[in-house]
Design a protein around this nucleic acid. Sequence first.
DNA 1: ATTCATGATTGTTC
DNA 2: GAACAATCATGAAT
Length: 434
Amino acid sequence: MDDQARIMQSIGGVSLAGHSVQGGMTLPPPHGHDGTDGDGRKQDIGDILHQIMTITDQSLDEAQAKKHGLNCHRMKPALFSVLCEIKEKTGLSIRGAQEEDPPDPQLMRLDNMLLAEGVAGPEKGGGSAAAAAAAVASGGTADNSIEHSDYRAKLTQIRQIYHTELEKYEQACNEFTTHVMNLLREQSRTRPISPKEIERMVGIIHRKFSSIQMQLKQSTCEAVMILRSRFLDARRKRRNFSKQATEILNEYFYSHLSNPYPSEEAKEELAKKCSITVSQVSNWFGNKRIRYKKNIGKFQEEANLYAAKTAVNAAQAAAVAAQNSQANSPTTPNSGSSGSYNLPNSGDMFLSMQSLNGDSYQGAQVGANVQSQVDTMRHVISQTAGYNDALGGNTMYISHKVSHFRAGCQPVPTGSADLMPTEEPESVHSDTSN
DNA sequence: ATTCATGATTGTTC
DNA sequence: GAACAATCATGAAT
């Protein structure tokens, strides 16, 4: 402390040796000691420096009082000028001017992630991109809407916490910055602080706070990741399809028992009807085929049930179609109104024909008139008759795919049955036990 | 608690 | 890449 005071004293002594200083200011004449030598000045300088050096050791009130005293000290402008000069000479004021930090890649990564997860950025209808993506990944159906909303609720919670904390940090940062700026401005009266320096200090504060923010972002990301992984793990959580959906799928399956391989369009149609995804339809058919094949006997009752149901539906459809054929002009296409096609299950039957008999489907499509519908329905009825015939066994149309399916289905292949032409519906009584 | 049913996943085959 | 086969994991019934 004494050393410092001495140094300062000597600096003061040198600088104050009569030459003009910053701002064209000249030293004021020594108060009441006109004509005295440098000893009096030195005394003053020594005194003022001593006060400055010891100010930090004092209590706040004492320091405050001393500060006021220093501000009013007659030597203060001179000392200020000297300090400015020294600072300029030593280049202290320029230091740190180069600090324009490039964007932190880590921070950018976190920001991007939070944005992608829907935590940062604008609120998207209470949900998030991630929630939607996860919903799609897990089927995105009404069946898992519970988990979906659960996930969304938790994500919203995280989002809220994140934003609250972020706001808090920002507020704290601003408050602290303002405080420091005020302090520096205040101090700039007694020691030389350029606006640039204040700016630099603000930058330092912001960097400090942004590092805290980064920690917040990091932990938020972790929380989202944990939530996400938990949610995705729950994908395996099986929810049974609705009874209606199972009904629709079973109807299609048993009415296409000969070739239970829905086309892509049929799958989409079924998916729409059942409010499930196409892949779920594929899964269902995959499971159904294999389970049916493994234990036909077990499914016999179910098959009979759906065969009967299909027959009734087809008959109904045919009746309505016949009625329509009488009511409508034969040349009037029933475009738009869907008519009998929209009858319960008639769509399945229609699709059935599409996959089983391209001709009849094409006919219906091209003709699109009532007569063709009636023909189609007749075809359907004949088909369903086949299913009814199969009450004691399994009716299957043969096709390249079907033969493969049947090979697995029927423990004792009937041999010649596999050679049956695909165009002709053929009832084959299975010799499997029922 | 156990068993069965069923949707989903995974590895393999064609 | 679709389908198969085996398996997992869960829901529902008992």
